[in-house]
Design a protein around this nucleic acid. Structure first.
Lengths: 150, 150
DNA sequence: TATTTTTGCATCGTGCACGACATAATCGTT
DNA sequence: AACGATTATGTCGTGCACGATGCAAAAATA
């Protein structure tokens, strides 16, 4: 009788919000964005724009297609985003000489200077509720998922 | 000399996209949504709508404020989303008798029936690239972050 | 060389997220 | 009862994400 009850609960639990992986992932991602928000606002950029800058700080002069691949985003997301970044003077968008279809994205001085603010941004996650070791483990698991998806 | 070089790299690495927690979290969240997409399309619902249904399957007749708290979303996100769900006949939205400010969300038969599709949805994450134990660990770490944020 | 296919980027429409702000119902206090 | 504060929900504007689709340049093939 008790075993049956337990079995039933176990089955029911699978439907519960907190027992699924999808919701914590979705909520945690938005939570991290929210942590960065105060500093990002100060810098006048959005979270996806910060990710674009991270790619460019690592390697300047990237084509849109490479940028899209690294961020796992599509051109229809990046094109308007990059246009806004160009308008605010963070990047330049130039047609490639070799391939007229390709757009090369490069940092302006203004965009390059923002790299100095990275430590301040990272500090926002200091008290995220998990230890450094747990964060490393978390990143490892997430990266494993991303690798699987190519 | 070699030690200095290593120190330098270590410092540089902190700026790299793949070495931050924020990007894998952001990308993995979108990846999971993408995995669910084929089945969600078939059911005629979106991913956030599925999360709303999960809450309602667990507890029907929930006020918008409680729903918002559970999903960590705001009314300005949920109101239009719930209106769309009402239009597609998944839920009802009724003003509470006790408190005229409050809206009570309840499942329709159509919304209730969709619960049967949960196993099919969960199956979409079968080959996400991590083991069951790793998924449990991942959920645990993410939940710890969410708890910290209340 | 001519034609087909692929690639790189773009536009358009829909649906979130969320900050700023508005509004009406309720509560707390006097 | 009167009224200021709080609460629950809503509107509006902006910026992603992404499916569907278009288009021109480049590559592949006939």
């Amino acid at each position: 009788m008790k075993a049956v009850q337990k079995q039933y609960n176990k089955h029911e639990d699978a439907y519960k919000l907190e027992n699924q992986l999808c919701f914590p992932l979705y909520a945690a991602s938005r939570l991290v964005t929210k942590c960065y928000q105060p500093v990002l606002d100060e810098l006048g950029i959005t979270y996806p724009q910060y990710l674009v800058l991270m790619v460019l700080w690592e390697q300047d002069q990237v084509s849109l297609s490479v940028l899209a691949e690294k961020l796992m985003l599509q051109s229809n997301t990046l094109t308007p985003l990059l246009k806004r970044m160009q308008e605010t003077g963070l990047i330049d968008r130039v047609r490639s000489q070799q391939d007229e279809r390709s757009i090369v994205i490069s940092l302006t001085d203004k965009g390059r200077l923002l790299k100095a603010e990275v430590p301040r941004l990272q500090q926002q996650l200091q008290d995220i509720g998990i230890t450094f070791e747990e964060a490393v483990q978390l990143k490892k698991l997430l990266s494993k998922m991303l690798r699987k998806a190519e």
